[in-house]
Amino acid sequence: MPEHKYTDGPWRVDSAFTRHAIKSPSHDIALVALSPQHEANAQLISAAPDLLQALEELDAMYARAWDTTDGGLHFSAESVAKFEAAHEKARAAIAKATGQA
């Protein structure tokens, strides 16, 4: 995976008083106004590192699985396990982004 310049995750939402704070273990990332719509926005922002990581893993597997000879996708047993793990990360990131986690 490429190195990123953003603050490492996991990020979380801490709601208090008049704002939602998106925080990492070491930094405040962003402040969002306190309302139901803004809470959804904060959840989506806090899931950004998880979403990016899951997509990068799926993208890397897709590139390795594509067979340029016959145009099909081919997975070894090891690749299937990695794909399933990346899919679960993606599902968890989606749940976090949508406030379902």
Rank of each mutant, 00 (worst) to 15 (best):
M1P: 15
T7E: 15
D8Y: 04
G9D: 00
G9S: 02
G9W: 09
P10I: 00
R12T: 13
D14N: 12
D14E: 11
D14H: 14
F17E: 13
F17K: 15
R19L: 07
H20R: 05
H20T: 03
A21L: 14
I22T: 07
I22V: 15
K23I: 12
K23Q: 10
K23P: 01
S24Q: 04
S26Q: 13
H27G: 00
H27I: 06
D28I: 15
I29Q: 05
L31R: 14
V32K: 07
V32A: 08
P36Q: 03
Q37K: 12
H38A: 14
H38T: 10
A40E: 09
N41C: 13
Q43C: 12
L44Y: 07
S46E: 07
S46Q: 03
S46T: 04
A47R: 00
A47G: 05
A48Q: 08
P49M: 04
L51M: 08
L51A: 01
L51K: 02
L52R: 15
E56A: 06
E57H: 09
M61Y: 09
M61W: 11
M61S: 10
R64H: 13
A65I: 04
A65F: 10
W66S: 08
D67C: 09
D67W: 03
T68E: 12
T69H: 11
D70L: 05
D70H: 09
L73F: 11
F75K: 05
F75M: 14
S76N: 04
A77I: 06
S79Q: 15
S79P: 00
S79E: 15
A81W: 04
K82C: 04
K82T: 03
F83V: 04
A86S: 11
A86L: 04
R91W: 03
I94M: 12
A95V: 00
K96N: 02
A97S: 13
T98I: 01
Q100S: 07
Q100N: 10
A101Y: 07
